[in-house]
Amino acid sequence: MKCQFCEKPATFHITELTEPVGPQVMHLCEEHAKGFLNKEASPPMTAIASALAKQLGQSGDVLEELDQKECPVCGISFFEFRNSGRLGCPYDYTHFESDLRPLLVNVHDKTEHVGKKPTRSAGTADSLAKMIGLRREMEEAIEREDYERASEIRDEIKAMEDPIAPPSTPSDTQS
């Protein structure tokens, strides 16, 4: 038997138990098995895939529209999230809130956090989103070689940065 991911013989046979998909047997070569087993026991892709499959039950038009929806802060589209299983920034949980909820129900069976909370207030969501937006703007300015604008934005970010930040030391500068 060949490894599921390459041409080498499959010498590891791994059973992954995931809800709601159930046990899944994987046949892997030593190298891929190591990679697989060294990953944390989080089954993001299977869980997300099955939750998203349910969303796919929606009509094509609705889904197409959803896929094109973009986060105004980090610019990730729902399509990109669906493909990668990874969100682009904290604001996505606000911007895609209604779209993510069915997925959260499917994965966790709950939609509300219970447990530890940070003791420090995290500033307003708006100001944090603005920071992330500015970082993206700076990146875009650098890309179009508008270094003057990039440096303006950098100053703006510096001014907004978390006041608890310790002063940067000389060893902090990029070498």
């Binding site: 610019g75 904290p90 992330i132 907004m160």
Partner: peptide, 8 residues
């Protein structure tokens, strides 16, 4: 809180 996630 003030950075995009790794992917972005």
């Amino acid at each position: 809180a003030d950075f995009p996630f790794i992917r972005r």
